[in-house]
């Protein structure tokens, strides 16, 4: 349940409807039950009504012509000061800015759709695995191979690694062939 000290600082925002709907409902519910806060809210609204009593002022008739004259003078001075290249650069810069702006405001949905499509295609290409052809069942057994061709077949034997025969190394080959031979020993 909301307390008065929490509600009262929120009343201005409540009067201006500058809060989420659920908070508005909570405060409205509190105001129905708390006459002090309800009175406070009413006084804020009254203050606002008093402020609205001020009549708006209008600009004088010379406002716009004077302003446009000043603006035109600024343009002339700038044109005289800025060289042709800088003017072209500025025009280019402004058109790029305009493109950026229109992209941000108008093209955003298209850009989002295009990037989504790109992401989907990249992901699907990455995940796609082409199916390799399965081994065919037309392999021949040894008995089916003609006898003259049986000699061509390569024989092989599967040997477990612990039963693999150790290489036979002769005693004179234990030393490296590149070891320098001691000349005294040779004599």
């Amino acid at each position: 349940m909301l307390k008065c000290e929490n509600v009262q600082p929120q009343l201005s925002a409540y009067v201006d409807r500058e809060m989420p709907l659920w908070t508005v409902r909570l405060i409205r519910w509190h105001l129905k039950r708390c006459p002090t806060c309800a009175h406070e809210a009413m006084r804020i609204q009254q203050t606002d009504k008093i402020l609205q009593q001020l009549d708006p002022v209008k600009t004088s008739d010379n406002f716009l012509p004077d302003l446009m004259r000043c603006a035109a003078a600024i343009t002339v001075i700038e044109r005289e000061q800025i060289s042709a290249i800088r003017r072209i650069l500025r025009r280019l810069e402004s058109s790029f800015a305009w493109m950026r702006y229109s992209f941000r405001t108008r093209m955003r949905p298209y850009a989002v759709a295009a990037s989504l499509a790109l992401i989907v295609s990249v992901v699907s290409l990455t995940l796609y695995q082409p199916r390799l052809p399965l081994p065919s069942n037309d392999a021949l057994t040894l008995a089916q191979v003609p006898s003259e061709k049986q000699a061509l077949l390569v024989e092989f034997e599967i040997v477990p690694i612990n039963q693999f025969p150790k290489p036979h190394l002769s005693s004179n080959r234990r030393t490296s062939p590149f070891t320098p031979v001691d000349q005294h020993q040779e004599r």
Binding site: P56, V57, F63, L64, L67, M68, A71, T75
Partner: peptide, 17 residues
Amino acid sequence: MSAFELLVMRYKDLITN
């Protein structure tokens, strides 16, 4: 300049007030 004039027309009273 006409775009600028239109902007001024839109906001001159609000800003002056």
